[in-house]
Amino acid sequence: MHIMEGFLPPLWAALWFAAIIPFWILSAKRVKKIYEDAPHLRMLLAMMGALVFVLSALKIPSVTGSCSHPTGIALGAILFGPLPMVLLGTISLLFQTILLAHGGLTTLGANAFSMAVVGSFVAWGTFRATNKIGTPPAVCVFFAATLSDWSTYITTSLQLAAAFPATEGGFFASATKFLALFGVTQIPIAIAEACLAALVFNLLTKYNPEDLRELGFLRTPKKISAPETK
């Protein structure tokens, strides 16, 4: 999903920066709030940022004979809400841009929007929706991570199509072209990402039930009946 340096015309690059800046500001405020008001959650938040680092570094082979990578954004967005992950995802994108020449500074706005904004909000929304109808939490995480990954790559395809409409067929012809390039490759990779996200979630419920309970992911056992926070 990394659009390479210089591969969006200046006007489009500027437009995506304009779109992402409000999210960066809101995200920074949210992270600061968690950092100050709930210091015991710092470790969990750092782990969610680290998950993006690991998963977005893994190039996974796919059934199309191409390689692509997961994003790792979903679990953090599910646990902390979509906003904090906007900043954490951007940090990972910056690392890859500066050290690996993967992605670009001019395309950072567009890349952060597809991965950290669309990916986060889709993950969070999918989790909430599936959880509401009584699906087990780990299964909700699985669906949320799959859709989050797909939606990121769909967004990238549409961003490219908008910047490069075909002479014949315009935006839709280009969108089909880019979706064909990214879409099929991403199907199994999104599922692999979802398996790993559900795995980490399961481990967290085992090793960190207190924090998950505080964030509202585990039902408080009746016997203990902890006082309701908020």
Binding site: M1, M4, G6, K59, S68, T97, L100, F164, T167
Partner: peptide, 29 residues
């Protein structure tokens, strides 16, 4: 098993033949 991110370059040039990136990374491995 090349990366899809790199294939965008070819795809863009198929749509717009004369497009070349207006900025190159200042450092690459």
């Amino acid at each position: 098993f090349s990366g899809t991110d790199d294939k965008v370059e070819t795809a863009v040039n198929e749509i717009q033949k004369d497009y070349s990136p207006w900025l190159r990374p200042f450092w690459s491995p």
